Simulated assay, not measured.
Amino acid sequence: MDWLERSARLRQWSRGGTRAPHKPLLFLYALGRFQEDADGELRYSAVEEELARLLAEYGPPHRTTPAYPFHHLVSDGVWEVRSERGPGSPGSGVRDLRESGAAGRLAPDLRAALRREPALLGRIARILLDLHFPPSLHGDLCEAVGLEPEPVGGGRPSDVRRQRSRRMRELVLTAYEYRCAFCGYDGRIGAVPVGLEAAHVRWWAFDGPDTVDNGLCLCSLHHKLFDKGVLGIGDGHRILVSQRFIGHSSAAHDHVTALAGRPLLGPQPGIRPVAAAHRAWHTGQVFHGTPRPAPACDGSATGGRVRGPSVPGQWSE
Rank of each mutant, 00 (worst) to 15 (best):
T211W: 08
H200N: 00
A296Q: 15
S75K: 14
S249N: 04
R244I: 02
V201S: 11
V274D: 12
P291D: 09
G88S: 15
A8V: 04
L131A: 05
A251W: 03
L147S: 10
R82M: 14
G190K: 00
W281P: 11
H248K: 13
S220K: 09
H71Y: 07
I127S: 10
K224R: 07
S250Q: 14
L231W: 00
R11C: 03
H248P: 11
D39I: 01
L218I: 02
V160Q: 07
D254K: 09
G229D: 03
V311G: 06
G284T: 00
Q314R: 14
V160R: 10
M1N: 14
M1E: 13
V192N: 00
F34W: 14
E117A: 07
G77P: 09
R63A: 15
S310W: 11
F133M: 00
D227A: 12
R43T: 09
A38F: 03
K23A: 08
E41A: 12
R238G: 01
V306R: 12
P193R: 09
P118G: 04
W79R: 02
R105A: 09
R167I: 10
G190H: 05
A205F: 04
R19T: 15
G184D: 01
T257Q: 13
D235C: 00
R11W: 08
D186T: 06
R63D: 12
P118H: 04
L265P: 12
Q268C: 00
M168K: 09
F70Y: 00
G139A: 14
V311F: 12
A67R: 02
A52T: 14
P135Q: 10
L114Q: 10
I124E: 03
H223S: 02
P149H: 01
R33C: 08
A8L: 01
A301M: 04
G266W: 02
G155I: 02
A275M: 10
S89D: 14
F245P: 03
A251G: 05
S83A: 07
A175I: 07
F27R: 04
I239T: 05
S100F: 08
E148S: 15
W13F: 13
E41K: 11
V145C: 01
H237E: 04
I246Y: 02
L147E: 13
T174R: 12
W79S: 10
E177K: 01
L42E: 06
L28I: 04
L121M: 03
E49P: 10
A280P: 08
V212H: 01
Q243Y: 06
V160K: 10
A294T: 08
L265R: 10
S45L: 12
L114N: 11
G266E: 01
Q314G: 14
F27N: 04
R164I: 06
T257W: 00
D298A: 11
G17C: 00
L97E: 02
V256A: 08
G122K: 01
D130A: 15
S316P: 05
Q243S: 12
L218R: 01
L73P: 09
G208A: 08
A251L: 13
R292V: 07
W79Y: 01
G232I: 06
L131H: 00
R202N: 10
P157I: 07
S310N: 07
A258W: 06
W204K: 12
A258Q: 08
I271Q: 04
G88P: 15
R188Y: 11
S83D: 06
G16M: 00
Q314D: 07
L120Y: 04
A191T: 12
